[in-house]
Design a binder for these strands. Sequence first.
RNA 1: GGUCCCGUGGUCAAGCGGUUAAGACACCGCCCUUUCACGGCGGUAACAGGAGUUCGAGUCUCCUCGGGAUCACCA
Length: 479
Amino acid sequence: MVRTRFAPSPTGFMHLGNLRSALYTFLFARHNGGRFILRIEDTDLGRYVEGAVDVIYRTLKSVGMNWDEGPDVGGDFGPYVQSERKGLYLPYAKELIKKRKAYYCFCTEEELSGRREAAAARGETFKYDKHCLHLPEEEVQRRLDAGMPYVIRQNVPEHGEASFDDLIYGHIAVDCADLDDMILIKADGMPTYNFANVIDDHTMGITHVMRGNEYLSSTPKYNLLYDAFGWEKPTYIHMTPIMRDATHKLSKRDGDAYFEDYVGKGYLKEAIINYVALLGWNPGDEREFFTMDELIEAFSIEGMSKSPAIFDVNKLTWMNAEYIRRLSTEQFTEYAMPYYQQAGIGTEHADVLARILQPRTEVFTQIPDMVDFLAKLPDYDAELFTNKKSKTNSEVAGNVLDMAIPALKALPAWEEQAIHDTLLGLAEQNGLKNGTILWPVRIALAGKQVTPGGAIEIAVLLGREESLRRLNLGREKLQ
RNA sequence: GGUCCCGUGGUCAAGCGGUUAAGACACCGCCCUUUCACGGCGGUAACAGGAGUUCGAGUCUCCUCGGGAUCACCA
């Protein structure tokens, strides 16, 4: 049975890189009929951010990534919050000490950083010299009894090779001589991430460890720990980061690294997930649009790439526009409603609004700017009436409006079909291009050169009274 | 700096020793058209460089270059 886990630290909003890692981890479990576990890694109390756990829950749920075990839903391997597992780690560390695979260390942070700086000044790489490993047992006990603060360090062999096999990177090996004796238990009694991770993954029965590839070089060290305990090692799958450009990761500083940023900017959650899924993974065929269920069905490790992918808002935006176009009129209207209200326009003709806006909306936040002219006629210049392709200029436009205004005014009902027939009839009767009639009418109605929809839709949206008022205003501009 | 990883168009990315080196986004042009979009058709554009292995190399090996990660009592 495949068991994977997503193990975020509660330090703020949901970063897109983390979201994608969670997604792949989730997809891999589901594709293989396995279980997806949520674990909160909060061993660093100093970085804890209030409410961050809720953000994680909310985000994952809102995109349909439901977990089978976790802090809120429980499970057989709890607790699922590391700080609540605090008591669990020390015994394991002591077991390692007994096996001489770890040792107490009384060196203080200050003297260590002093030595580190000195080494750096000499241009050398600092490595802990195992000083405390050689302390006599009685001395260690004496210091412990005296209540001296201590940490517990891993005792990495001085020689030999540490290695592991990654499902996407293959065999990774490092010389033990290059490895430092990392701290397992901190002076405050909490385990370091490095240690807690190994203990938790093992005790929670995680079969496939999926995580960012910043852990690629420390994983051999973790495997030394598994060996020391005599535990079966998990399968490793290291994932690439999402980049802002060739040399920088997408980061908080860019202000656009968070899932919620994009939701707030008018992107659909489904589109974000779909786009992000394709950044670093491909299904092996030409498909680009996936529901969550389709992703589960199609996902495989073979499709994951080894090199980082640069985030392209451009393509996300295109994909979002595609998702918007596939919405039903009702769904579109529901998403658009807050933006209609923001623009202060009437929504009694929501169907017409959807018809003209849906093919033009890439991101919902674009809507107010597209429709604001409906709420208030902009100040505009009579120059706008001149358009070469439509064969209009101020003189032609004046004549057109002179014909259009009474014709429209005479309409018994202000209905789209009737307006359409009237205006196009005018063109035909006078042997003019449709555009020659429609251009001036649209300009007078909208007061701007580019509008979503044409003269007829705009007239419907404006209603009889306002339409005629604007047409007359336009006519006056042409005196 | 040591160690590890990565390197196909501007971006995502197919390719797993033999292809005219796919496809998508973006960009450009044309068509459609009631402006702008949508839609349709077409176009520009890539194997980081150098050696080797091989009848044949984007695909295998080595070196160089470029980029990233890591070297914390952070995760």
